Simulated scan of single mutants.
Amino acid sequence: MESVTLYRAPTTVADADAIADWLDVRVDAEVSVRDRFLSLHGNSDLAEPFAEARVLSPYDRETGNTMLGIVRYEERALESPERAGGVIYDGLAVQRALHERIPESERSLDHLHVPLLDRVVGTWGDHDGRWHKRVHVLGQPAVVSVPGLYEAPAKPEQYYKEQQKHALLSGGAPPREVLENEVEGEFLVEDDPRTTDALKGYVLQAYHYLDTGEAFCDEETCRLHNPHRQPGVVAAQLREPEFCPEHAEQYRP
Rank of each mutant, 00 (worst) to 15 (best):
I102R: 03
L116T: 13
A93G: 05
V114C: 07
H111V: 06
V87W: 02
L109A: 12
G86I: 13
D110W: 00
E104R: 07
R101H: 10
S105W: 02
A97Y: 07
V94F: 09
G91H: 13
P115I: 13
R107E: 00
D90T: 08
L112W: 00
A93S: 14
E100A: 15
R101Y: 06
Q95Y: 09
G86T: 11
L92A: 13
H111E: 15
E100T: 09
H99A: 11
L98V: 03
D90L: 11
L98D: 02
D90F: 04
L116K: 04
L98P: 05
L109I: 03
Y89I: 06
P103C: 12
D90C: 01
E104W: 02
E100M: 08
L109S: 08
E104F: 05
L92M: 08
V114N: 01
L116P: 06
S108E: 03
I88A: 03
A93T: 15
D118G: 13
H111Y: 08
L92G: 05
A97R: 12
H99Y: 06
G85L: 12
R96N: 08
R96G: 12
P103H: 07
Y89Q: 09
S108K: 01
P115V: 15
L112C: 01
P115H: 07
L109W: 01
A93M: 14
L116E: 05
V114W: 00
L98G: 15
V114F: 01
R107T: 01
S108W: 00
S108H: 02
H113E: 03
G91F: 06
D90R: 05
A93I: 08
H111A: 14
R101E: 11
E106Y: 01
V87F: 14
L117N: 05
R96L: 11
D90W: 05
Y89F: 15
I102Y: 03
L92S: 05
P103S: 09
G91T: 02
Q95M: 10
L98S: 15
H113A: 06
H99E: 07
Q95E: 15
R107Q: 09
H111P: 03
R101S: 13
D110C: 04
E104V: 11
S105Y: 07
P103E: 13
E106P: 03
V87R: 02
